[in-house]
Design a protein around this nucleic acid. Structure first.
Length: 432
RNA sequence: GGUGAGGUUCCCGAGUGGCCAAAGGGAUCAGACUGUAAAUCUGACGCGCGAGCUUCGGUGGUUCGAAUCCACCCCUCACCA
């Protein structure tokens, strides 16, 4: 029995390993020196989202442990669409759009992984080795290694094949061959011997392992990461606004920080292990301390701080905490004119008001348009329950038509700011 | 191609001529309680501050009146070929 690899052990303690190829061999591989490993990210949008964060951080964990990660942007696979566990055929995106999205992902990934240095990490794009391949070569050289029988048997496409009325196009069916080809190529080009990915990628990954053995005669490995679940069964990583993005323009550091801060107790320590680099012992200590102390736990705050810092940097975290402090301390009187300007810059939702538009406009419409509620009805409900506060003053439904008066410059802070709170958590800054 | 079942408001799902903006559940939003947590309880939940306006696969029709009846069409599912 060889020594247990510390990285592998840490990953196990964190619950970050769903499946692996032969564990003994994997352990030996990691003990034998620097390993080159890869993880693919398909450009399906102009930004990565929380679902990508765990694999991305995983690459970093390996890099920190002295291994060499390859971040693969799926410029080619993104054109095809991964059918794994999807119940419906997906809409194809145009080549220009996918290329542009791919560039966005590259920029984001670069903030997590260090690509400098000759022996450093590699940023690759599978478009580079697929775009030029002609159909006949591909079918003869690569396709010949796959049996349709095996491809059909994969769990990831099973529901699409079994189920009547669903179906799968040849295009998407081919996806697993393309991803397998990536592994084989990365093995040839960079000596890559380990692939990581979400547990839904197991089928695609094993295809790559087989292909690499057949074409390169190389014995390569894989680790899959668990699907991140929430204790209440709802989907992780979603808010009212949809996905939580890593791009600060799409999800502000403040909104990002708030997302983590609102993590249920039942999930917070697990998420600390998944999404931060804090040692597992320290996380366990936080959990113990929280359990012993009555009242508000520390876990959420630590989680929000750590992950926001990781994704948005010190400055992003500071901005998020600045807003949070101002809005949730209950004391906004301490804010200076400069602070209000900063709130908007820091990512607090804000909008401009035009005096002439306020005369006929009910608050319900005004706040719904500002994005504080989905429909005027929700604002009405909040007004009825005294849940709307403008600059510290409660506003009721009887003032619904009094927008012009409420937002008069005489009532403004520093002659132009209005901080509106709807419910306990929704804040919006209006400026005149 | 044949036969049978069905398409209802975000989702599931009741509703078969007026009492239906449409039961019930879920999701969502707000309130209470708390810790910006969970659980629980309360309210809202097509759109509109309101008067009112627009919905029940589509198009036409019957009727004072249709989600509900009729005709045609579109789509889904099941079984058979």
């Amino acid at each position: 029995m060889t020594a247990v690899n510390p990285l592998l052990q840490d990953l196990q303690h964190r619950g970050l390993i769903a499946q692996t190829t032969n564990e003994e061999e994997l352990n030996e591989l990691l003990n034998s020196g620097a390993v080159t490993l890869y993880c693919g990210f398909d450009p399906t949008a102009d930004s990565l989202h929380l679902g990508h964060l765990v694999p991305l951080l995983m690459l970093k964990r390996f890099q920190d442990a002295g291994h060499r990660p390859i971040a693969l942007v799926g410029g080619a696979t993104g054109l095809i669409g991964d059918p794994s566990f999807k119940d419906q055929e997906r809409q194809l995106n145009s080549a220009e759009v996918v290329a542009q999205w791919g560039d966005c992902l590259k920029a984001q990934i670069s903030r997590f992984i260090d690509f400098s240095g000759d022996e450093g990490a590699v940023l690759a794009n599978n478009y580079d080795w697929t775009a030029g391949v002609d159909v006949l070569s591909f079918l003869r050289d690569v396709g010949k290694h796959f049996t349709v029988n095996k491809m059909i048997a994969k769990e990831s496409v099973k529901q699409r094949i079994d189920r009547e009325g669903a179906g799968i196009s040849f295009t998407e069916f081919t996806y697993q061959i393309l991803q397998s080809y990536d592994y084989q190529q990365l093995n040839s080009r960079y000596g890559c011997t380990l692939q990581i990915g979400g547990s839904d990628q197991w089928g695609n990954i094993t295809g790559g392992i087989d292909l690499t053995r057949r074409m390169n005669g190389a014995h390569v490995h894989a680790i899959t990461l668990p699907l991140i679940t929430k204790s209440d069964g709802t989907k992780f990583g979603k808010t009212e606004g949809g996905a939580v993005w890593l791009d600060p323009k799409k999800t502000s550091p403040y909104a990002f920080y708030q997302f983590w801060l609102q993590t249920p107790d039942a999930d917070v320590y697990r998420f600390l292990r998944f999404f931060t680099f804090l040692p597992v012992e320290q996380i366990a200590a936080i959990e113990r301390a929280d359990a012993e102390r009555a009242g508000r736990p520390e876990g959420q705050r630590v989680l929000a701080q750590e992950v926001t810092k990781l994704v948005h940097g010190e400055a992003g975290l500071e901005a998020a905490e600045r807003i949070t402090q101002a809005l949730f301390s209950g004391d906004t009187s301490a804010l200076s004119e400069n602070d209000y300007e900063q709130l908007s810059l820091d990512g607090l939702p804000s909008s401009m008001l035009l005096a002439e538009e306020l005369v006929e406009k009910p608050l319900t419409t005004l706040f719904a348009e500002a994005g504080m509620a989905k429909a005027g009805r929700e604002v009405k409900d909040a007004l009825q329950r005294n849940a709307v506060v403008i600059n510290g003053r409660n506003v009721g439904l009887d003032q619904n038509m009094a927008a012009a008066e409420l937002f008069d410059s005489n009532n403004a802070l520093f002659d132009r700011f209005f901080l509106v709170k709807l419910g306990k958590k929704k804040h919006h800054l209006f400026m005149i």
